Every structure is written in C-alpha cells, then in structure tokens.
Simulated assay, not measured.
Amino acid sequence: MTKFTRILILAASASALGACGGIDLGNRERPDEFAVQRQAPLVIPPDFDLVPPAPGAPRPTEGTASEQALEALFGGPAQRSAVENSAIRLAGEAAPGIRSSVGDVETYTVDKGAEVRTIIAAPEGDGQSARSVIPS
C-alpha cells in the first residue's frame, strides 16, 4: 500500500508540474503605463440645470496633459514665492512676450560659426588623446 501511495503521489506531482509549463505569462495583454493620466476629483456643480457633456468631449475642469504641462512650465494665476520674486528682481525685469521676440527674424543674433559647435560637441576626457588637425 505504501508503494502504491508513493507512486500515486509521484504521478500527481508530475502531472501538476507538467501543467505549469503550459501557462505563458510573457504574452499577456498589458496596459500602456505612459498613457495613464490622473483624473481630477469629482465636484458637485453649483448649477444643477447644466446640460450633460457630449460623448467624447474633454473634461472642462482639467484640460489635457499637454495643457497642464504648459501651465506648470510657464505659470498661471498662482502667486510666486518670495524666492522667485527675489530672483526675478535680481535678474532684471524681462520685456513681456520675450519668448516671442527672441524667435523673431528681426532679432539680432551672432553666428559663432562651426568652431563653437565643434568645441561643444568634443568628447569629455582629460585631453590625453586629443589631436590637432590642420586643414589643408
């Protein structure tokens, strides 16, 4: 009886281990973790006579992720801290719309040439392997 029980347990464990080989966890469908966006909490509207939103329309309270990024980068109605105000005061007041005027074709810029790009693109190191090339 003991031999029969051992053989039965051995056969059951072999079949259980064989069944584990048929499970494939590598090819399952996964969500895109970069497409996840936080949702604003639900808010009770002050006016209950509102029309329900159209299907597929963006939520009017939060905007898209790119709009939120632009708001975070370039500011909005939030007050600046004392440190930010101090840094702006020390740097000097910039003209309003400076980002637009810098990209304007009428803005005077200096072309430093290819040499500056070559120096900036040079590999880092201690300079032991640097060689000078004289153009002919």
Rank of each mutant, 00 (worst) to 15 (best):
E67I: 07
G75A: 00
D49H: 05
A57R: 12
F34L: 14
P55R: 04
D104M: 01
E71F: 14
I98V: 11
P55N: 14
Y108C: 03
A16M: 00
I98M: 06
T118C: 03
G22I: 08
R117C: 11
A16I: 01
S101A: 07
T109Y: 01
L17P: 05
A16L: 06
N27W: 12
P45G: 08
P45C: 15
V36H: 05
R89V: 00
A69E: 05
R59V: 11
E106D: 11
F48E: 14
R59F: 11
P52A: 07
P46M: 05
Q79W: 14
L17Y: 10
E115N: 14
N27K: 13
L50A: 07
E115D: 11
L73I: 05
V36P: 05
Q79N: 14
P55K: 08
V102C: 00
E29L: 09
P46S: 15
S13A: 13
S15F: 15
Y108G: 10
S15K: 14
S100G: 09
G18R: 10
G21V: 01
S86P: 05
A91T: 01
L90S: 09
P58V: 00
P55G: 00
S66R: 05
R80C: 09
A40D: 03
F48W: 09
A54E: 13
A87Y: 11
G76R: 10
F34H: 07
G18I: 08
A40L: 02
A91M: 03
S86V: 01
G18Q: 04
Y108M: 09
I23V: 02
L42H: 05
A91N: 03
S66M: 10
S81C: 11
R89I: 06
K112F: 00
Q37F: 12
L70N: 15
G56E: 04
C20I: 10
E93K: 00
R80V: 06
D47V: 02
G75Y: 10
C20T: 02
F74C: 03
P55M: 11
E93T: 07
R80S: 05
P53V: 03
P58S: 08
D24A: 07
Y108K: 08
G26C: 15
E29W: 10
R38N: 11
V43Y: 09
A69K: 05
K112V: 08
A72Q: 08
Q79M: 13
R59K: 14
G22D: 07
R117I: 14
A40P: 04
S66G: 11
L70A: 12
S81D: 06
T118S: 15
S86R: 09
C20F: 04
R38L: 06
D47E: 04
R38V: 01
V43I: 14
E93M: 08
G76K: 04
E67H: 01
P77M: 12
V102F: 11
N27T: 01
D104Y: 13
G26P: 11
R89M: 03
V110M: 00
F34N: 12
V116M: 08
G21A: 03
P60L: 15
P31Q: 00
F48L: 13
R117P: 07
T64P: 13
P41K: 10
L70K: 06
P45K: 10
V105G: 02
G22R: 02
L42T: 14
A87W: 00
D24G: 11
G103E: 04
F34W: 04
E33W: 12
T109M: 00
G22N: 13
A54N: 14
A35S: 00
E115S: 15
